[in-house]
Design a protein around this nucleic acid. Structure first.
Lengths: 339, 339
DNA sequence: TTGAAAGCGGTACCAA
DNA sequence: TTGGTACCGCTTTCAA
């Protein structure tokens, strides 16, 4: 796909590259290029469908007009939605998005960050695996524009846009309590992610605040890789004597889905026997019987804010750090104990 | 983020850029650069964390090692899954993916294709809005490597990786028939997309083959924008006298979800009153009561094949067109009339 | 075995 | 108002 270049136009029109470049970047008036010349160039360019080579342009200008997006998994609906939003907003400001998924691997994340830097992205939006302090620190040290989303490093000061995990879980627990539940369990993933720690903390603090005891077995942590496998035992353990759980908060939407499957298999009725709340929506949660109460994550807002903050950071190198924490809402349906 | 350049190394080491370039591209042996020189260069590069500027590299080599992905909407789970897969496979071959969503707009799609070409992507994977013959033809004319996915243009010969929409719908209808349904409706989107036409065709042909009459009202077409709004009337119309539908095939997963919502509201029992099958999965379909029978789309395979075909096309300019049509499976659950 | 230099396609500064 | 030219950072050819 050989495109016409500035050189080509220059030769054909016998006008210097510089003049042409100026005109085609719409700075003809500013640079006082005569109307005639401008028209001639514009016409010729249009006719031959001239398009600047962005690689060359980027190389020359020292910026690529690309921003990099790094997420754990683009096929996760949460990140997919954020990505869509980021893409949408970035494009409005003339940026393209280049993305990659880390699969929660620190090594991969590190490679991806480097790869994007090699491609000269102008800024980075990262939902980090959070085992990657070095790279984050390096970016920071180099004053490279970036924003952390969804997950942040509590002991590194950076721009970030996250959500109120603590508050969200708190809402979930409160809701169960409101429906008279007292033995409330929390099913989550093996920690590592700050977000999950916060959710756990939100759970335990709220329980405590309400004077509800937490037995050791109330809190169950699964490995990401073996959720389906282990959910069975976990549910069984916390529902049966002596734990007698009557409410469960699931730390993620997919944990909730897996949990519901097991509750069904064990013939445990929702919400009569056990009321549940999911941290995070799934698109058919309203169709399940009973419909599932869920904490709604602000994915669109995260995407929006991330781009805003990043663009600002790209413009003014040191405008201080933006630390945004978005509230999560609860969508109340029957699974939490409605009558 | 100022990186060290070949120049810098050249100066420091007093070795020419060319030699360094060769060595750092691992062609030192091939080009008979002495071991000593190689080591010296490698060591220095590692120490100073040299990374080639991909913009410059791309400009010089005339290829960017990027492939562009254009889909209607990256936040749609179907495309998100494909994207993940494409990204995964592309990366294995050293390519990065740059993506954008068209929102089903022809104009946007056209712009995006151009934008990616401007960025010098080495190839394009496109799930086209299908109102965009010109661009596709242009790519073809220029011998630019690209693959159409999910949707193709029947009257333009190109590489494509699609799924068997006809066969999928056929499976769906057959399944309903197997459960004794005879008045089967088909709820779809206003056409435009080839895929939807094929699904419609799969429906009507199968009905005919089975000797089942199709009344005009059996086939209902909704606008993408007003699904929730219109689903109510549509369901009502086909379920009530005189149509008395006892089975429905939904042409997409979200139509199915919307349909189920309405069936519930109208107190129509699934599958006793109306049995249903969804073309396309949704992650909680197995949790709905009754669990929803669905045609499972081969998203992973589409992603895999798309990359395979594209890479091949990029390697050998005219290896002929690859036309891949993947089978869809049916996942049978209770909604289709199981007892 | 290594180096010099041209070129990839732009941008931008300085002269004219 | 326009042109010449250096430069962005890398690859590659040709000479040495």
């Amino acid at each position: 796909m050989k495109n016409i270049s500035l050189q080509d136009i220059s030769k054909s029109l016998k006008i210097s590259k510089s003049t042409i470049s100026i005109v085609l970047n719409d700075r003809g008036d500013e640079k006082r290029i005569s109307k005639k010349t401008q028209e001639k160039i514009q016409k010729f360019a249009k006719k031959h469908n001239y398009k600047a080579n962005q690689l060359a342009r980027g190389l020359s200008r020292g910026k690529s007009d690309m921003i990099g997006l790094i997420v754990p998994n683009i096929s996760d609906s949460f990140y997919a939605r954020i990505a869509r939003r980021i893409e949408y907003k970035a494009e409005k400001s003339g940026y393209n998005v280049i993305f990659s998924s880390t699969g929660e691997s620190k090594v991969k994340e590190s490679q991806l960050i480097q790869s994007m830097l090699d491609r000269q992205v102008d800024g980075l939006i990262i939902a980090s695996s959070q085992k990657n302090e070095e790279d984050i620190k390096r970016l920071k040290r180099n004053n490279f524009p970036f924003v952390l989303i969804d997950r942040h490093y509590p002991n590194i000061e950076t721009n970030y846009v996250i959500m109120d995990n603590y508050g969200g879980t708190s809402l979930a627990v409160e809701q169960l309590i409101k429906h008279g539940r007292k033995q409330i369990g929390f099913i989550t993933l093996k920690p590592g992610l700050e977000a999950l720690k916060e959710r756990l903390y939100g759970y335990s603090q709220t329980m405590e605040k309400r004077g509800l005891p937490i037995k050791a077995e109330y809190i169950q942590e699964l490995n990401y890789e073996s959720i389906e496998l282990k959910m069975h035992q976990v549910i069984k353990k916390i529902v049966e004597v002596p734990n007698n759980i009557d409410g469960i908060v699931f730390a993620t939407h997919f944990l909730a889905a897996a949990g519901i499957r097991e509750l069904r298999k064990l013939n445990i009725r929702i919400p009569m026997d056990v009321a549940i709340v999911s941290f995070g929506q799934m698109s058919a949660f309203d169709l399940i019987e009973p419909p599932i109460t869920a904490i709604q994550l602000p994915s669109n807002e995260i995407g929006d804010k991330a781009v805003d903050v990043l663009l600002k950071n790209m413009k003014e190198a040191d405008s201080g750090y933006e630390k945004i924490c978005l509230k999560a809402n609860i969508v109340i349906r029957k699974s939490c104990g409605m009558l």
